[in-house]
Design a protein around this nucleic acid. Structure first.
Length: 472
RNA sequence: CGGGGAGUAGCGCAGUUGGCAGCGCACCUGCUUUGGGAGCAGGAGGCCGCGGGUUCAAGUCCCGCCUCCCCGACCA
């Protein structure tokens, strides 16, 4: 039986497939103002799972949550020169309030370094106050000319961590801890997306940072997506905002800082890293619905059997939805759950029940196997575990198969048409190599050592390799 | 900001020479269905982007404006 074509096939038009799946899986749609986004309940449920997992890791790293204002005085924003220059083109600025022109315009935060640092300056007095480790979950606004749902928008949701440390070394270590223990761990273990970790080039680093660390992933069209970044800010902001402390000898010193963020862009990553022509394929650990129990019909005991199975699975701790919408056609219901990426589907119908069985369908592999009623709980638990690791393995294989070593700029551009190219940094010496790539729509996503490990903060480009790709 | 398109039902679109506002999907009602996007019958839904003009008559022709989308430089 040929499956009905419900989405534009990925191979035909990947961006169209992406738009189709967001709409049909009811994740999100565009808002009335350009670049804004409405996240629908199913999509938001996915984001909430991501938040919960990231938040747990953030707290495990000793960071505490707080909240800072949406509005930032423009004067704050101007204090760090490079920061202003970097963000000015995409600022939304409020000039009127309460029916009057404001004395001082107010910036809608595109990121919160400036307002948070103003308060850190008050809170940090002594080396005993350090490190100060803060995070906030918030929306931010960066005026966007070219929005794409989840990937790039005028307003998006994220977490932004901001820390202050006594030493450069401590800040450096913390920035890498965030990259490894919060971001990479979450992305690999929960989202089942392998990431390429590395350092950004000077050209690609955050405005105001001394060093930016990144986690990059490959989407199923071979393009790169920046999943999260962790910045070493040096002492630039500390100087601009006067974040100083008395050290053990009573001397005044400037703090060393970090900031780091991951956004609702991760939603787009999840869609594009695992999705196929039938729709989403969600790793069980982020899936809002892990198991859907579909009653083929409600008569002949199927409805009761399905309800019993669902209840049993719920008690076992799974996120389960019972689907008895027999007023809809069977195909529509099945296709709907495939679109939404539910990892496991149990089909409960009188024909199989008569033989003491149900059908267990896995979204990741499209497999369908009969399972004896007594084995359902055990088999579902196993299927969920296997689905999680199978998606990660598949994504790893895709990444490996679409990554190649290249020896020249020409080869790098060619490799970037289908995936990642790994180019010796010496081939990019100076700024001109990177500029040449950029003109061809190819960017340096990350710098690594030849063995793939993280380079040092000051390790020179010419001793490293550059992972290059087309990027979102 | 430069180039190219488009605004008509919730969505996607057609609308010829100016002559009753249409189609598909979705929606509502009923019946039949129900193991891969069901069938039949009936029904509801419109500031044709906005403002002028031409005309007996404008979705259609003319002028102005607005908005959105696509392609070119920075950014989670």
């Amino acid at each position: 039986m040929p499956k009905p074509e419900v989405l534009t096939p990925q191979a035909a038009d990947f961006p169209q497939w992406y738009q189709d799946v967001l709409a049909k899986a009811e994740l999100a749609e565009t808002g009335p103002v350009r670049g804004t986004m409405v996240i629908r309940p199913y999509g938001y449920a996915m984001w909430e799972k991501m938040q919960a997992e990231m938040d747990a890791r953030i707290k495990a790293a000793g960071v505490r949550n707080a909240y800072f204002p949406l509005f930032i005085p423009e004067s704050y924003f101007r204090r760090e020169a490079e920061h202003v220059e970097g963000f000015s083109p995409e600022l939304a600025i409020v000039t009127h309030g309460g029916g009057k022109k404001l004395e001082e315009p107010v910036v809608v935060r595109p990121t919160s370094e400036t307002v948070i640092d103003a308060f850190m300056a008050k809170w940090v007095q002594s080396y005993r106050d350090l490190p100060l480790l803060l995070n906030q979950w918030a929306n931010v606004v960066r005026w966007e000319m070219r929005p794409r749902l989840f990937l790039r928008g005028t307003e998006f949701l994220w977490q932004e961590g901001h820390t202050a440390h006594a030493t450069e070394q401590d800040a450096h270590r913390f920035a890498l801890k965030v990259l490894n223990d919060i971001y990479a761990d979450f992305m690999v273990e929960i989202l089942a997306i392998p990431v390429v970790l590395g350092r950004k080039t000077q050209r690609e680093r955050f405005a105001g940072a001394t060093t930016t660390w990144t986690a990059e992933a490959m989407m199923r069209d071979g393009k790169a997506l920046q999943m999260g970044t962790s910045h070493e800010l040096g002492q630039g902001f500390a100087k601009a905002f006067g974040i100083t402390f008395s050290d053990e000898e009573g001397r005044q010193s400037l703090c060393w800082q970090t900031s780091w963020g991951a956004s609702t862009r991760l939603m787009g990553a999840l869609v594009m890293a695992h999705g196929d022509d039938q729709g989403l394929r969600l790793p069980p650990r982020v899936a809002p619905v892990q198991v859907v129990v579909l009653a083929v019909r409600t008569q002949d005991g199927a409805g009761e059997a399905a309800a019993g199975i669902a209840e049993s699975l719920r008690r076992a701790g799974h996120r389960v939805e019972l689907d008895t919408r027999t007023d809809l056609s069977w195909g529509r219901r099945v296709v709907g759950w495939e679109l939404r990426g539910a990892p496991v589907r149990l089909e409960v119908g009188p024909r199989d029940l008569a033989e003491g069985k149900v059908v267990l369908c896995r979204r990741d592999s499209n497999s369908k196997v009969p399972v004896a009623l007594g084995q359902v709980d055990a088999e579902v638990a196993r299927a969920l575990e296997e689905a999680q690791s199978a998606l990660l393995s598949e994504a790893r294989r895709y990444l490996e198969d679409h990554t190649s070593s290249v020896a020249s700029l020409e080869e790098a551009e060619e490799a970037a048409q289908t995936g990642f190219g790994v180019l010796a940094g010496s081939a990019l010496a100076g700024d001109s190599g990177e500029a040449t790539l950029n003109e061809a729509g190819v960017t340096i996503r990350a710098l690594q050592r030849k063995d793939g490990s993280l380079p040092g903060t000051y390790e020179d480009l010419s001793d490293l390799v550059a992972v290059v790709a087309r990027a979102y």
